[in-house]
Write a protein that binds this DNA or RNA. Structure first.
Length: 495
RNA sequence: GGCUCGUUGGUCAAGGGGUCAAGACGCUGCCCUCUCACGGCAGAAUCACGGGUUCGAUUCCCGUACGAGCUGCCA
């Protein structure tokens, strides 16, 4: 059996869409599972849409996610160039297109945009239409230019009239292809439009370049989104016209938003970069999208890239579209943060912490306090603001039913303990704990009755990461004492 | 509109002619606990509908409904 070769063929139009990332992931996994080759090819055939710097984003994303390609523009091997505009310059596509013209499987088309417009027929009635969907244009080229004689074609060519080259599809019979996920699919040839192979600017269309390059680069498995399922029969015709062997097709189910619509740029989490900016971890993103439309036979959910390579089998990719569930991604990200080794965690958490805290206190300790409490790094900020500055708060939070606390007994605890903290020479966590524990023991009260008032007094919040000891240690003696004094004052005023 | 595809809890999903229809997220409750979180335990919640085939259909077939994708000199 031939060695598997898959390819990731993005067009450099901006950030990496998660749908594309998942396709890249599956392509990588399919290749690596079998020890095959993963190729990167840049499809920059649309000069209009090309965005500067987008190629760098592609490189960076693949590197950051660990989807390392074996061949590509930066890793030339035997099948280069790996950039379609460079291949176009070499005349590769036009050469193959002409071959098709020779065999009668393609033809020159000189139709103007205006003529093409008149071909569009409207379906539905504007007045009756509920939405634009109900009023759609349908187009199918009428093979007008196929009737041109060879002389006419040459004449137009010599005159420099702009032209495209179109595929000549049969109008009768049907075309069948096999997809590994969706099975056999047949379409009537009458449905097949004579799609454009070479655009009037000389560039190939995506569809044509794809077929030519995949063949030339010996790609064995074509993995792509389900949105290409409908155009695949036209690919089949192309392979047939060339007499080339068709690759194995693996069409992946769509990824949708909560509204079950194809994930769009507007969704806010549609690109890898968006997700990173929102505090997600690369590994978690990869893990999560791997599970969108696929699951391993052992039912494992948390998987490293290596485990994915081991477990991945495209035979059990799903057909149904999958909703991108932000809530589950958040959970998974939290799992990765909890498991993360300390050094890397601190490194990633620190920028967030420094945005909130300017004081010279133990930031690392704060970081460790929130490690099991966050799902994304962005979550840190709102949790730790009280370390920087005591928030405005209402004394009603001293009252807690389960802790059996209220303003009166909280005041008592604070007044009893304040002098002890003031006296405390070595103000560290274990000493603070000892003071409080001793006091609780002497008074014969529950832990909660002693600790709730203190934690509340030094934080001004009902919920905090960490308990009284940790917070007091971090903010230090002076600040602790000041905050307790302030709370005592508030309590006195209200009683 | 046409073509193509899809439909197991709210979401991701396993399964597949006879099951109490896995698991995970989320949700609810309990335990742990100085709060929140972590961790542990428990619970509610699913085979779109209608016909077949069959002793038996969530599973196979056909329709219907609903949803989605495509219908570009975009990819």
């Amino acid at each position: 059996m031939n060695k598997i070769r898959t390819r990731f063929a993005p067009s450099p139009t901006g950030r990496m869409h998660v749908g594309n990332l998942r396709t890249a992931l599956y392509e990588y996994l399919i290749a690596k599972h079998e020890g095959g080759t993963f190729v990167l090819r840049i499809e920059d055939t649309d000069q209009q849409r090309e965005v500067e710097g987008a190629v760098d984003i592609i490189y960076r994303t693949l590197k950051d996610t660990g989807l390392i390609h074996d061949e590509g523009p930066d890793k030339e091997a035997n099948y280069g160039p790996y950039v379609q505009s460079e291949r176009q310059e070499k005349g590769i596509y036009i050469e193959y297109a002409k071959q098709l013209i020779e065999s009668g499987d393609a033809y020159y088309c000189f139709c103007s945009k205006e003529r093409l417009d008149t071909l569009r027929s409207h379906v539905g009635n504007v007045e009756e239409a509920d939405s634009e969907k109900d009023f759609k244009e349908i187009t199918k080229y009428d093979k007008h230019c196929m009737k041109l004689s060879k002389e006419e074609v040459n004449k137009y060519l010599n005159e420099g009239i702009p032209y495209t080259i179109r595929q000549n599809n049969p109008t009768e019979g049907s075309t069948t292809f096999k997809d590994e996920v969706f099975g056999e699919i047949s379409v009537d040839n009458s449905e097949l439009d004579d799609m454009i192979l070479i655009k009037s600017d000389g560039f190939p269309t995506y569809n044509f370049a794809n077929v030519v390059d995949d063949h030339l680069m010996k790609i064995t498995h074509v993995v792509r989104g389900n949105e290409y399922l409908s155009s695949t029969p036209k690919y089949t015709r192309l392979y047939e016209a060339f007499g080339w062997e068709e690759p194995v097709y693996v069409h992946c189910p769509l990824i949708t938003n909560e509204e079950h619509k194809k994930l769009s740029k507007r969704s806010g989490h549609s690109s890898y970069e968006d997700l990173i900016e929102q505090g997600f971890v690369s590994e978690a993103i990869i893990n999560f999208i791997a599970l969108l439309g696929w699951s391993p036979s052992n039912n494992q959910e948390i998987m490293s890239l290596d485990e994915l390579i081991e477990l991945f089998d495209y035979k059990n990719i799903n057909k149904a579209p999958a909703v991108f569930d932000m809530v589950k991604l958040r959970w998974m990200n939290g799992e990765y943060i909890k498991k993360m080794d300390e050094q890397r965690y601190i490194e990633m958490a620190m920028p967030q912490i420094k945005e909130i805290i300017t004081k010279d206190i133990d930031l690392k300790k704060i970081a460790m306090l929130v490690k099991t409490r966050i799902e994304t790094f962005i979550d840190i900020k709102e949790m730790i603001d009280f370390f920087e500055e005591m928030p405005q708060y209402d004394i009603s939070i001293f009252t807690h039913k389960k802790m059996k606390t209220n303003s009166e007994n909280s005041l008592e605890v604070l007044e009893d303990l304040l002098p002890k903290f003031v006296e405390l020479q070595d103000y560290n966590e274990s000493n603070i704990e000892k003071v409080i524990k001793d006091y609780i023991g002497e008074k014969g009260i529950k832990n909660g009755q002693g600790l709730w008032p203190i934690r509340t007094a030094v934080s001004g919040k009902q919920n905090t990461p960490g308990g009284a000891y940790e917070i007091m240690t971090i903010i230090g003696k002076e600040e602790s004492v000041n905050r307790i004094k302030r709370s005592i004052k508030m309590l006195k005023n209200s009683i």
